[in-house]
Write a protein that binds this DNA or RNA. Structure first.
Lengths: 154, 154
DNA sequence: ATGAATCATTCACGAGCTGAATGATTTTCG
DNA sequence: CGAAAATCATTCAGCTCGTGAATGATTCAT
């Protein structure tokens, strides 16, 4: 008598957990290559996104909103500042804080990142036909439930 | 006259690209914590999955199928072997190759990983109601289009 | 039989991230 | 008021994960 359940060798690969992980990795890799053309990493795009969404946010809050250590944010902003995408100025009301301002160049770079993301999305959802809309809505809902930034699909 | 298009600050966050990346990262993090209880990393689970799916595969092919360097596979298999999840034996027909065999303990560990993944999936799709089925089908289709392992949802 | 190819392995290295100091500033409260 | 605690940005050492280049053993091609 066989005790162990007759194991489905795809028991793991067929889960949404596994597929979200692997698909997410591939998509992130593509996005990484795309924004590398503008000398940026995905995290830089995320920083710009957060800054546009919450203007006047502090570095600490920024780091917390992205789930990374404050020490990491320093280097990310250093790079964005060197690229003229961002300016750091001491907050006159609390001179410990840096007030971060997104420049016109920063908005330009952000727009390029968003374009790259949109292009990758088109390729991804191409084969889905009219089910793409449903998929995007469900995905946005999941992201929202996880407390992640998820604007409504345009 | 304003040249720059009036920028949607969620232009990036609203893309499926961005959401797949962030959701994928969160899901992977949860899965990482879950399998850590069995002293495994997600890659170990992936190795077991590939081995069960393609028995008798070589380390090189295994590495290639997972998109990692062969040198990385050495350490992953070392760990699985130390955990009695896997046995390495020289292929008598080609003594350069290692033939990798998944043990009963390996199948047990794999089943535990699959269970964890299923549990995480339940939480994720909980809020989706009856749209969960559609979502899973679309996700599996995307994974398949990318050449990733994607068994049909059970 | 010899030179090229293939396999597993080791090793040095880089990218990315963390947590613990540090110094400057602000807040709390005795 | 003034001293102690908290907060912010920053630096720094260290960890993990991954790569690519050597190495040695073995097999293949001619």
């Amino acid at each position: 008598m066989v005790v162990v359940t007759d194991m489905d060798p795809e028991a793991l690969a067929s889960t949404a957990t596994f597929q979200l992980g692997t698909v997410g990795a591939v998509v992130t890799e593509r996005f990484t290559r795309a924004v590398a053309a503008h000398d940026l990493k995905p995290k830089h795009a995320g920083v710009l996104q957060a800054l546009l969404l919450f203007p006047g946010i502090s570095q600490q809050e920024l780091a917390q909103s992205m789930g990374v250590a404050p020490s990491l944010m320093v280097g990310l902003l250093d790079h964005l500042e060197a690229a003229d995408a961002v300016r750091r100025e001491r907050d006159p009301g609390d001179r410990r804080r840096q007030v971060i301002e997104v420049t016109a160049e920063g908005r330009r770079l952000f727009a390029l990142c968003a374009e790259s993301a949109a292009a990758i999305e088109s390729e991804l959802l191409d084969g889905l036909g009219e089910r793409a809309g449903e998929f995007r809505l469900a995905l946005a809902e999941i992201a929202g439930n996880l407390g992640l930034p998820s604007g409504k699909p345009r």
